[in-house]
């Protein structure tokens, strides 16, 4: 089966620091994969490379056969790659509804003249967008908060709103950057159910960055482990969990202190 998202050998250096070296990953439709690694391993940098915030020095990113190398983030979002942010980036002053409606932007077709004259086509489209956004928010349990300013939502709701907003762009692939950060155990349990639900209901492939190992092991079908920008392991949750290289990267081994994981130890 051909991959939906195909990333091959992307690298990025900040000056002398190799943030990401030779990173590859392939996601098929409906995949649910995890990307883990210690702090500073380069996980978010990988997301920023995939979404066009940074431009890779080398390598290729293809989504559904379309080359996304060098495209700007809005183009990449239009191609079907959406994301959430580690440090929540909602449109704080806008209402919950408008946060989602901004992301509906890509499906709006009427012209500026149509909007100014309020043509019936424009009004129909606005009504459809509103209905769609409201429905999406209801699915995410935010149906009764549509009028609220996004900044006033509780933390867990903000995380969910970010996922809803990303889905409103009709993505093929969804990148979630630490969605469980700051959540309590109950919220985390609900989140893992939500992630599976999103995958099944919206048919998207999901790539998840997460520090909560319990959550990652529970929801992900495949895991890639990064350390110092280098892929040190890849496999099923069980394989990764028992991989000595991974354990070493997380817990440290006396002989390895301070240094990166040597390339020959990559599994």
């Amino acid at each position: 089966m051909t991959a939906l998202l195909e990333v091959q050998g992307i690298s990025l250096s900040f000056g002398g620091l190799k943030a990401v070296s030779d990173f590859s990953i392939a996601l098929r439709a409906g995949d649910l994969q995890g990307l883990i690694g210690p702090n500073g391993a380069g996980k978010t940098t990988v997301f920023n490379l995939l979404t066009g915030v940074y431009r890779a020095d080398r390598g290729s990113i293809r989504l559904g056969g379309l080359d996304l190398g060098g495209a700007k983030p809005s183009r990449i979002a239009a191609a079907g790659l959406a994301r959430t942010f580690q440090n929540i980036r909602l449109f704080g002053d806008l209402s919950v509804l408008d946060n989602v409606r901004v992301a509906c932007h890509l499906r709006a077709a009427t012209s500026m003249a149509g909007a100014i004259l309020r043509t019936s086509a424009h009004r129909g489209e606005e009504a459809a967008l509103r209905a769609y956004a409201t429905e999406l928010l209801e699915i995410f349990g935010l149906g009764d908060r549509t009028g609220e300013q996004a900044r006033n939502l509780p933390y867990g709701d903000q995380r969910r709103l970010e996922i809803a907003r990303a889905l409103a762009t009709s993505p093929k692939v969804l990148l979630l950057d630490e969605p469980a950060a700051g959540m309590n155990p109950q919220e985390k349990a609900a989140l893992s159910a939500l992630i599976r639900f999103v995958r099944d209901r919206f048919g998207v492939a999901i790539l998840l960055i997460e520090h909560d190992m319990g959550l990652v092991m529970k929801v992900c079908e495949g895991i890639t482990v990064l350390d110092h920008g280098v892929t040190i392991a890849r496999g099923t949750p069980e394989q990764v969990q028992n991989d000595p290289v991974v354990i070493e990267a997380y817990l440290g081994a006396p002989a390895q202190e301070g240094g990166g994981v040597p390339a020959e130890r990559r599994s």
């Binding site: 979404t51 915030v53 700007k72 983030p73 809005s74 183009r75 979002a77 239009a78 959406a82 994301r83 942010f85 980036r89 909602l90 449109f91 704080g92 002053d93 806008l94 408008d98 901004v102 992301a103 932007h105 890509l106 907003r165 990303a166 409103a168 762009t169």
Partner: peptide, 16 residues
């Protein structure tokens, strides 16, 4: 408005 609120997020949501 999304640009004013958060330019990076706006761009990520497909707003050029």
């Amino acid at each position: 408005l999304s640009i004013r609120e958060n330019e990076i997020a706006a761009e990520a949501m497909g707003v050029d």
